[in-house]
């Protein structure tokens, strides 16, 4: 009984914390972006402008929930939910701490890859259902970007899998007791992180949105909380990629004992989240063809090479 309760508590707790983090990121991102741009950012509502989160959420809830008459109604409504659900499901396999993990799947990594691929449906369906040329262009870009980057996202992780010998995230974290995999798999890490940015279509890879070209792309026609879902989905995506990166390459919850494991995990994840924001503050958006070229012509060969070398070394070291 208590185990079930505990189980539920973990699920509800994680859900609660994640959604709050996503909301909190609204403020974090604005303040950090402002600081990197020599501004102050939102500082009026509440202490340090923290209440901007509340204001923003209220605004999103009270905005007119407009469904364009020319849109495909049902698909239009479903699309934003897809991204939030798929990202939240991915968190099921993240080991936040030795005791905090919803489910330790032995194919956790594959589950993560699968779920993140599902996220693209949100963009494609949203763009398609909007029945608007910019949205459709955004959706098409989103789809092709996802397909391209998904390929080596998966491949870049294979090095880690080879090193740990498991798809289970818990096992992978525990395999980093001695040294973090980022040391053994630097190339894998970089490629995974780049693919992760593309996966969450964050700047500089926000090609599906590209407000200067596509007037917000796939979510041009969305308003109110439907837009809010895309918004939250994006922050959840950042958090997810950061957590995964921490779990796979930076030893997850592992760290000196003066802090609890969860704190270590949170600190590392926060660092990556901030890095995401720093990227947005510093890098311009590449052209669409440049993005594709970069993916297929540079990153993919590099990943394969990385895999080959890792495999070779492992074979060499494991020689009886």
């Amino acid at each position: 009984m208590s185990e079930t309760l505990n189980y539920w508590l973990v699920i509800v707790g994680i859900l609660f914390v994640l959604l709050n983090i996503a909301a909190f990121l609204i403020w974090v991102e604005r303040r950090m972006l402002a600081l990197w741009q020599d501004r102050l950012g939102p500082n009026r509502a509440g202490p340090f402008g923290l209440l901007i989160i509340l204001a923003d959420t209220l605004k999103l809830f009270f905005k007119e929930d407009w469904i364009p008459p020319f849109a495909d109604r049902h698909v239009f409504v479903i699309a934003p939910a897809v991204i939030v659900i798929s990202v939240l499901l991915s968190f099921a396999i993240i080991p936040f701490a030795p005791a905090i993990q919803i489910v330790d799947l032995n194919i956790g990594l594959l589950f993560f890859l699968g779920m993140s691929s599902l996220g693209v449906y949100s963009i494609v369906l949203g763009g398609w259902a909007s029945n608007n040329k910019y949205s459709l262009l955004g959706a098409l870009r989103g789809a092709s970007q996802m397909i391209s980057y998904e390929v080596f996202m998966g491949l870049s992780l294979m090095g880690v899998v080879m090193l740990s010998g498991s798809f289970s995230l818990r096992t992978i974290v525990e395999a980093q007791k001695d040294y973090w995999f980022v040391l053994l798999q630097p190339v894998g890490f970089v490629i995974f992180f780049i693919a992760g940015i593309a996966e969450t279509h964050r700047l500089p890879f926000d090609i599906p949105e590209a407000e200067s070209e596509l007037v917000a792309g796939f979510h041009s026609e969305y308003s109110g909380m439907k837009f809010g879902m895309f918004f939250i989905g994006e922050y959840l995506g950042i958090t997810l990629i950061s957590s995964i990166t921490v779990a796979l390459f930076f030893g997850g919850w592992l760290g000196p004992a003066f802090l609890p494991p969860l704190a270590w995990f949170a600190i590392k994840t926060a660092g990556f989240i901030l890095f995401f924001i720093l990227l947005r503050a510093s890098l311009p958006r590449p052209r669409y063809d440049q993005l594709m070229e970069y993916g297929w012509k540079i990153l993919l060969p590099l990943t394969l090479l990385n895999l080959l070398v890792t495999g070779g070394i492992i074979l060499f070291l494991n020689q009886p």
């Binding site: 402002a34 990197w36 020599d38 501004r39 102050l40 720093l278 503050a281």
Partner: peptide, 11 residues
């Protein structure tokens, strides 16, 4: 860009 964290703000 990161170093701008330590600049004075213009606001």
């Amino acid at each position: 860009t990161f170093l701008h964290l330590f600049h004075k703000t213009e606001t």
